[in-house]
Amino acid sequence: MIHIENLLFGYRKREPLFDGLNLEVTGGSVTGLLGKNGAGKTTLLKMMAGLIRPGKGSLSVMGFEPQNRPASMLSDLFFVPEEFYTPSMSIKLYVDAYSVFYPKFDHALLHKTLAEFELDQQKSLKNMSYGQKKKFLISFALATRCNLLILDEPTNGLDIPGKALFRKIVAGSLSEGQLVLISTHQVRDVENLLDQLIILDRGQVIFKETIHQVSEQYEFGLGHKLEGTEALYYEQAPGGYKYIAPASEFNESPVDLEILFNAITSGNLKTKDHVNTIL
């Protein structure tokens, strides 16, 4: 669905943001795009949505060159930016005006998600809080049934129940072959939702694996002490140590995205051949 080859890009008078970036993402997953501040996550998402022209190299989205913004690509792609615009009109009128652009628009799904987020369709978007507007926009994005959904920091501004609902609604609304690309710093908000993880650092993709592959390789734990643990990476945490160890045959643990991200971006995640058994 997304094919990037040898992408070069930089803002003026600055070092290149992407220097020969390569990435291939297929459909049918919820993929997390992680990276430190300034790693280029939002820029990459905007490029995929056709809002920024790539420099050199090639970028194709669903077979289209996104920078040309062809209508047939845009009708199968929905981008929810971190800071967004909603016109001063009711939800009902917004849906009436804009749903027609999306041939697969699912009104039943929209009604369901709006009800779950407790949003009144008659209410004007102008009188809603940032979080409510975001809930609406996420609901609308899911209802478009677009093949590619790009969500930039989707949980920013959502309340605590809203974050849990977001995970539930996204997981329950996906169509076959659909790709949901989520860029976020709030990794806890998307844990148990992601199928795949991509980490960007210094203009390169430094990690791309499915959550299944990660859990097959690693075990994530929290202990008071590290004695006897074969830690590939560890860091201090309230109550002891968080660690990553080689996966054991009988003990499958949920993936801790935060420690995995820290381990990978710090370059300190050891391979299984170089395990430190802490005595």
């Binding site: 949505a49 056709g50 809002l51 913004r69 062809p70 209508a71 047939s72 845009l74 009708s75 792609l77 929905f78 981008f79 930016p81 800071e83 967004f84 615009y85 804009y98 652009f101 999306y102």
Partner: peptide, 18 residues
């Protein structure tokens, strides 16, 4: 005139000509 409005407008599924 506004970045957020521009994103909304440019990603609307219609061609440049339309």
């Amino acid at each position: 005139r506004n970045k957020e409005k521009a994103i909304h407008y440019l990603t609307l599924p219609a061609s440049g000509g339309e």
